[in-house]
Amino acid sequence: MDQPVLRGEGSVGAAGHADPVAAPTPASIAPARRTPWWAWALSPIALLPLIFIVLIALVLLFSGDLKLLFEPGFWSFNFYFNPLAPSQAVWAFPLYLVGTALTAGIALALATALSLALAISTTVYLPAWLGRSLGTLTNLLAGIPSVVYGIWGYVVLAPYFGLTLQPALRSYLGWIPFFGGPLSETASGTGVLLASLILTIMVVPLTTAIIRDSLVSVPHPLLEASFALGATRWETTRRVRLRVARSGVRGAVFLGFGRAIGESVAVAMVIGGQTQIPPSIYSGTSTVSAFLLYQQDSAFIYPALLHALVEFAVVLLLITLVFNYLAQRASGERGAVGPTSAAGI
């Protein structure tokens, strides 16, 4: 008899949050809309990135022909290039890949832990206004050009690392593998440790932003349900928020890793540039992108070197694409969680 016109009455307590499933999506009620002409007109522009990637790949393929990839020397660990005998060159791609994977791996391990802590504290524990401001601040950091980090690392951090931190780490943590190895003779501070930390600082804003977004997008009713069962904030965060946001976290890690392996300038400035498998975290090594960056000028003089750089670039491109795809797929699963929670509310 007093059935209201609109179902539900926006009770005070619940009015604070939007209910993602309450309103049927417009698509489900509105008849199929006509696509406006400008959307059609603009659609090729959306394809531009794809076209660019295809073009880049084609150009690289044509200028590189990928023959080197199938030579055993490409996959060796002992770099050798004599400009007078370019045919004897041994490109040692895995040597550089080890440096790339090592620095990116350490960076992502640190960045993930730090980002989770940052994202959780800003979304769950800190007052909303402070959390939002800090979130904005982290996003701002993501826009800083990497060369700035590189110069900062090289000018400010490197001397401190080389003269103070690394000897201290070695004497206190020397019993951990890789922490006990030889210090670099240059005491310049450059090497795996510094490069990984610079990468961490670069990647943290990106991963934090994504993890924050996925934590914030966890439907409020799920959290309330958890609290109503007597869960504390930490228990709710761990058992509900993080569980629902898991795919977002995974996506952040993959995307961060893709960024880290592709980063050249900042890493190149502090990696130390030795063509060796690093015996300790204090040692210099090189990465694929640092090699590309520093050899490109010489490559204009030596065609064989150019050839090798192109094939390095192709493999790096492929690896980055794979990680970006994994990131996409991980956040695609978030799409799958959508209906899950939708059905659940």
Binding site: A228, T340, A343
Partner: peptide, 23 residues
């Protein structure tokens, strides 16, 4: 407390009921 709309966690039926006990 039970809410206006059913709110199940994206977990199994068993784990949903066990949620509070696991705490």
């Amino acid at each position: 407390m039970v809410f206006q709309r059913p709110v199940v966690f994206p977990q199994s039926i068993y784990e949903n009921v066990a949620f509070g006990l696991r705490l």
